[in-house]
């Protein structure tokens, strides 16, 4: 019995999925049509609450828990955040720079100025960068994707 468990342990430890080129995380992707990030950013009301499939380069990953990642838009300098429930899906740090397909629900996040400043500070701490609270002048709202499943290519 212990030999079987040892075998299972070693098999899982070195199974290709740990080091795979393509990672499937969370629920399987069901949608086939990709919605452009720029389209979602341009028309947030149209997509709020809807399930979408997006695709793009991963430009940032939560350094503490892997609980969010930023996907670059098809339009220069734009991006969209994909947030998952802590532990349900963990985006690996190595995913930065790779392409991802993500399926999830587009949700609007409305923050008061104080909440937006707190979030900015939080992200700066996570990323080890600097944050200027004066850059937030009022309430902020933005659309992000509540990730349900992803394929990191």
């Amino acid at each position: 019995m212990s030999k079987i468990l040892s075998f299972l342990f070693v098999t899982l430890l070195f199974s290709p999925s740990v080091y795979a080129q393509e990672l499937q995380l969370g629920d399987p992707i069901t949608l086939t049509e990709v919605t452009k990030v720029s389209e979602i950013n341009a028309h947030p009301e149209k997509y709020k609450g809807k399930k979408v499939l997006i695709e793009g380069m991963i430009i940032n990953v939560c350094a503490a828990r892997g609980c969010w990642m930023d996907i670059a838009s098809d339009v220069p300098f734009e991006k969209i955040q994909v947030k998952v429930v802590d532990g349900e899906i963990v985006f690996p740090m190595e995913a930065k720079g790779r392409n991802a397909k993500v399926e999830g629900i587009a949700e609007e996040l409305k923050l008061s100025r104080e909440q937006a400043i707190a979030m900015g500070k939080h992200r700066a701490e996570e990323q080890g960068g600097e944050f200027d609270p004066s850059s937030i002048t009022g309430p902020v709202s933005f659309l992000r994707i509540r990730g349900l499943g992803a394929i990191i290519q």
Binding site: M57, I59, A72, P76, F77, K96, G97
Partner: peptide
Amino acid sequence: FKNVAMLNP
């Protein structure tokens, strides 16, 4: 090399 992106201008 994996990729390159412009974060801002």
